[in-house]
Simulated assay, not measured.
Amino acid sequence: MLVLLAFIIIFHITSAALLFVATIDNAWWVGEDFAADVWRVCTNSTNCTEISERFEGYSTLQAVQATMILSTILCCIAFLIFLLQLFRLKQGERFVLTSIIQLMSCLCVMIAAAIYTDRRQDLHHSNPEFYALTSEGRYGYAFILAWVAFAFTFVSGLMYLILRKRK
């Protein structure tokens, strides 16, 4: 049982770390001379332009920003609640609250990655200053980490739903 508990804790911490990296790192859309995420566009790793209201599609990026942040916060809250429930729940009870919060985190990261997937072309191609730069790019590792974090938080949420507190 102790090995299972250690695995679940490590799995949850890994999910949170993936969410932090995917939210913060500047590699959602990358090319040879640029990197772009939901916060800024950088050329040659030195010249960074913050995405602001003048950026067409800013409200879409704000939705991605908000859902990624919310997903990270919910994942951390789920971990804290898991630790509290670990010592508070009676034997044989399930970690339902932890599961619900972790599945909400999963939903948020899925929404963020799906919005970015759907609107990425509109975001980068509708802004003339970045069009020539970002037209020849590919999804970066932070974007892929967001989808991996979706899978991890989903599996974690299901594990908490199935898991019963035992001796």
Score class of each variant (00 low, 15 high):
72 T>G: 07
8 I>C: 03
36 A>W: 08
76 C>W: 04
92 G>I: 09
58 Y>Q: 02
134 T>E: 12
141 Y>D: 00
83 L>E: 10
106 C>S: 13
10 I>S: 13
115 I>Q: 01
17 A>P: 03
44 N>R: 05
143 F>K: 03
127 N>M: 14
55 F>T: 05
32 E>Y: 06
10 I>E: 04
95 F>L: 05
98 T>V: 10
85 Q>R: 04
20 F>D: 09
53 E>K: 15
109 V>L: 09
47 N>P: 05
15 S>K: 00
26 N>W: 00
65 Q>F: 11
23 T>M: 12
153 T>Y: 04
123 L>W: 07
165 K>A: 06
143 F>E: 03
153 T>F: 00
93 E>T: 05
85 Q>D: 11
70 L>D: 08
137 G>L: 13
155 V>C: 07
161 L>S: 05
154 F>R: 02
13 I>G: 12
64 V>D: 03
44 N>I: 07
113 A>R: 10
146 A>W: 07
25 D>H: 06
91 Q>P: 02
94 R>P: 00
4 L>R: 12
83 L>A: 13
127 N>V: 15
39 W>G: 11
62 Q>C: 08
146 A>L: 12
146 A>V: 04
78 A>I: 01
146 A>C: 06
13 I>D: 08
136 E>Q: 15
80 L>I: 10
84 L>I: 04
55 F>C: 14
30 V>K: 10
38 V>H: 02
134 T>F: 03
110 M>R: 06
110 M>H: 12
